[in-house]
């Protein structure tokens, strides 16, 4: 995959390099229970970007001095596999991954009923298996359904997407090459039923009008992603119910 800076036009006659229209998401795949040892897990792909997420907890937090007596805590780790990018990424945390881990946690904090779980932790591990742009939002989308599958009580799902300005046009769900050549890009997450934005990172150059337009677009697409997330969770529980009726034991 070539993702470096290029002078090439990325949108020709209203079509992007991968054939999409500016307002199109890439093909989305959401799958649950890919890590059986975890309390909840999922795999999400947006085009070539793939994230696997495992959720452990709510579980007792050790060592004990980390426990909070009046609330539970949420811990998130965003990590990229060394082979997920063009040039091998050295294993271990980078400045970038430390920051993304933090903003991922903050994207979920307003959604989770942490105050109901004193002394407890919910651990969310996001592994990027293949990176082709928009990895943090793909991780958040996967984490959202994995948490729901783990039975973590939440006020709402969290849905995320990227938007940006490429070749002067507003686009949704940037891939790697668009990300590296954009005039501006925004990582965005929200609780769609509460209309609450929980992740907002922007870089590039935008006027206020352009920004507000892009945020609108981000909101619309988060709602689309939300319905896909909801569907995959509903399917899981239909399956569980059917298995219960038959008396299947996994």
């Amino acid at each position: 995959m070539v993702m470096a800076k290029t002078d090439e036009k990325l949108i020709v006659k209203g079509k992007r390099k991968d054939g999409r229209k500016p307002e199109d998401l890439r093909p989305v795949k959401l799958e649950l229970d890919v890590v059986k040892r975890a309390d909840g897990s999922s795999q999400a792909s947006f085009g070539n970007t793939v994230a696997v997420v495992a959720v452990y907890g709510p579980r007792k937090l050790y060592p004990r001095f980390l426990q909070e007596s009046d609330t539970g805590i949420l811990r998130c780790r965003y990590n990229m596999a060394p082979f997920s990018v063009d040039e091998r990424k050295k294993p271990g945390p980078s400045r970038r991954s430390v920051e993304i881990s933090k903003v991922t946690r903050l994207a979920f904090e307003p959604a989770v009923f942490l105050e109901d779980f004193p002394k407890v932790t919910i651990d969310v591990f996001v592994e990027i298996i293949a990176a082709d742009g928009s990895t943090r939002v793909t991780g958040i989308n996967a984490a959202s359904v994995a948490m729901a599958a783990a039975g973590v009580p939440m006020r709402d799902l969290v849905s995320a997407c990227s938007v940006g300005k490429v070749d002067g046009e507003y686009v949704v769900d940037l891939n790697g090459i668009e990300d590296n050549n954009s005039d501006a890009d925004i990582a965005f997450a929200m609780m769609p039923n509460k209309d609450l934005i929980t992740l907002l990172q922007m870089d590039g150059r935008l006027t206020k009008e352009e920004l507000m337009k892009l945020l609108e677009m981000a909101g619309e697409n988060c709602r689309k992603i939300y319905s896909m997330q909801r569907e995959v969770i509903m399917k899981k529980y239909e399956r569980v119910e059917a298995e219960d009726e038959r008396g299947d034991v996994e």
């Binding site: 903003v103 307003p110 609780m191 209309d195 934005i197 990172q201 870089d203 920004l211 507000m212 945020l215």
Partner: peptide, 22 residues
Amino acid sequence: RICAMQKQGPGGLTMKDIDTII
């Protein structure tokens, strides 16, 4: 022109909040 933004803190923001903030 706006060149960088970052939401911080434990809570969320509405679209109207962002408008006011900018």
